[in-house]
Computed example of a mutant assay.
Amino acid sequence: MEQISINTEYIKLDQLLKWANIADSGAFAKLIIQNGDVKVNGEVVLNRGKKIYKGDIVEVEGVGSFKVV
Score class of each variant (00 low, 15 high):
44 V>K: 15
2 E>A: 10
49 G>E: 14
52 I>R: 04
41 N>Q: 11
68 V>C: 06
12 K>P: 07
12 K>R: 15
62 G>P: 04
61 E>Q: 14
59 E>T: 15
64 G>P: 02
21 N>C: 06
53 Y>S: 06
18 K>L: 10
56 D>S: 08
58 V>D: 04
66 F>G: 06
5 S>Y: 10
46 L>W: 00
46 L>P: 00
43 E>A: 11
15 Q>L: 11
43 E>L: 12
36 G>H: 02
53 Y>H: 13
26 G>F: 12
67 K>L: 11
3 Q>W: 09
5 S>I: 12
51 K>C: 08
48 R>A: 01
27 A>N: 11
57 I>K: 13
56 D>K: 09
18 K>G: 06
48 R>E: 08
39 K>Q: 14
47 N>K: 14
2 E>S: 12
5 S>M: 09
29 A>E: 05
45 V>M: 04
63 V>E: 12
40 V>K: 12
5 S>P: 00
28 F>V: 15
21 N>Y: 05
1 M>R: 14
43 E>H: 10
15 Q>N: 14
10 Y>H: 13
18 K>W: 07
36 G>E: 02
1 M>F: 13
33 I>G: 00
69 V>R: 12
42 G>W: 01
33 I>D: 01
49 G>C: 09
53 Y>M: 10
9 E>Y: 01
45 V>R: 05
10 Y>T: 12
10 Y>S: 15
68 V>M: 03
39 K>N: 07
6 I>F: 09
14 D>V: 05
32 I>T: 13
6 I>C: 10
69 V>D: 12
69 V>E: 14
1 M>Q: 13
47 N>F: 01
25 S>H: 08
31 L>R: 13
37 D>G: 03
22 I>W: 08
27 A>F: 02
12 K>A: 13
5 S>H: 11
1 M>P: 10
64 G>H: 04
16 L>H: 05
35 N>Q: 15
14 D>W: 11
42 G>M: 01
29 A>H: 03
69 V>T: 14
2 E>P: 01
62 G>T: 08
19 W>I: 07
29 A>Q: 07
34 Q>A: 09
42 G>N: 11
60 V>N: 05
54 K>P: 08
15 Q>E: 14
25 S>A: 10
23 A>H: 10
9 E>D: 15
14 D>G: 07
40 V>G: 06
11 I>K: 06
62 G>N: 10
26 G>P: 05
61 E>P: 00
67 K>A: 09
5 S>L: 10
16 L>G: 03
61 E>D: 11
13 L>W: 03
27 A>M: 06
44 V>Q: 04
51 K>V: 04
24 D>R: 14
36 G>W: 02
60 V>I: 15
35 N>G: 04
57 I>M: 05
9 E>A: 14
11 I>N: 05
42 G>P: 01
26 G>T: 11
11 I>F: 02
69 V>Y: 10
11 I>V: 13
21 N>I: 02
56 D>I: 09
28 F>N: 11
26 G>I: 12
62 G>D: 05
27 A>W: 01
23 A>S: 15
69 V>W: 04
23 A>Y: 08
39 K>I: 02
35 N>D: 13
